[in-house]
Write a protein that binds this DNA or RNA. Structure first.
Lengths: 229, 229
DNA sequence: CGGGTGATTGAGCCCGCTCAACTCTCGTGG
DNA sequence: CCACGAGAGTTGAGCGGGCTCAATCACCCG
């Protein structure tokens, strides 16, 4: 099975209003040629950085997939987000990483030094606004995820997750999940068995079709009815 | 660059309506005397702004308390955060409020125009970094809340909530909650009955004492053991 | 005193969890 | 080519934590 996600054509990262139009989507910090990244690779299940470590680098994914999470001492885990080709992660406002990042599949990234970025931000207001904007985007995602975790049923969570993945893969209605049922469960605050049962239920309710465990074809009309608001 | 977050200067614990009028409105954005706020009042349960409305103002609380939340069409509600005297809220990176804000008690605020703040940010890197820093702080809180909502038991959630409130009231170990059991429940992803039962359990486990429903005196040693990591 | 709101407590149920068996896929080697 | 094993996913049976529904209690303000 191909675990890596198809390389992304043009994931647009929205940024501060006035600067965004001028920026080419591929190069995150365009107009900043002094910011140079180095390529790097991680293999499946490898840790990229740990919670509490110094935030030395910021990463942009070229291929593969990454999860960020927090883990309690007894092993309970909450995955905060998944990152796909074109996405940026590891980006902190303070000195420390507050989450752990791990490669879900073999993953290629470009690493940038955080200090360089910071230096840039002090001298360039547009860059500072972009950094702010990215953090705001993460916050927005977190806010949506909190109502999911606090108030949605298992079936609604799984349906919402699938719609989120569809959106991130270009809304084609046909997606290949890079992550396991356990990862999905830890993202949604469920057990892997419940995720599996919900997926079977979505399938028997004709909201989607499965081929293998990870390839999905959606009927968004039906699927949307299950997320409902 | 000043990336560090400005620590809150002397949070007012006692709600002193008269004294508040005398407070200089600007200390939040010190060094920005051109930013002027106007005082305003909301009564208990009054909406301050709604989800989807244009984000015209940013608010600083002088007295009272505020909650921000999202509500699903069928009435399920998730409270994202509580704001107390000295706190800032209503602060968005985009054009819209993505949450609803309501006064929990009678509340006095100072309102600042968002546009003024934005204009300031585009011309002043320090302000831009401060805005970024505040958003990052919200994100950090959201990340901690997600693992609570996704992976903690009812008792752990309530204990964590009480410790959080203690921290925000100055870690005196003695606090008066401004919000109802229902608000706490919607913050923690529980029902109000479960919150009430957990509080009784904390009390009988000697982690705290209740006088009335809202006045708590904590035994932090015992309480901390229940949050455990 | 009563009326009203908010909080507590009780009884029973159900959704999602736990534990366990089974299936499917895929890679490896004889 | 099949046999085998390992890991991932599915499905089943039963349990239990938190929810629902309901009664009671506590506390304000008249």
């Amino acid at each position: 099975m191909r675990l890596e996600t198809t390389p992304h054509p043009a994931r647009q990262i929205t940024i501060a209003p006035r600067a965004s139009a001028a920026l080419p989507p591929i190069d995150l910090f365009a107009g900043s040629p002094e910011l140079i990244g180095s390529p790097f690779s991680y293999s499946r299940e490898e840790e990229i950085y740990g919670e509490g470590e110094e935030a030395e680098y910021v990463y942009k994914i070229l291929s593969g997939a990454v999860r960020t999470c927090k883990i309690l001492s007894d092993g309970r885990r909450q995955i905060n987000g998944f990152y796909l080709p074109g996405d940026l992660f590891g980006f902190e406002q303070g000195e420390m990483h507050r989450l752990t990042a791990e490669a879900i599949a073999d993953t290629k990234v470009i690493m940038f030094r955080r200090r360089q970025l910071e230096r840039l931000a002090t001298s360039n207001v547009d860059v500072a606004c972009q950094l702010w904007s990215m953090t705001a985007k993460s916050l927005q995602h977190a806010e949506a995820h909190m109502i999911l975790l606090g108030r949605r049923t298992a079936l609604e969570r799984v349906a919402a997750f699938i719609m989120e993945m569809d959106a991130r893969f270009g809304r084609t209605g046909s997606i290949e999940l890079p992550m396991s049922r356990r990862d999905i469960a830890d993202y949604l605050g469920l057990t892997l068995e419940t995720v599996s049962r919900s997926m079977s239920q979505l399938q028997s309710g004709r909201a989607m079709a499965l081929s293998g465990a990870r390839r999905l074809v959606l009927d968004k009309r039906v699927m949307n009815a299950m997320v409902e608001d």
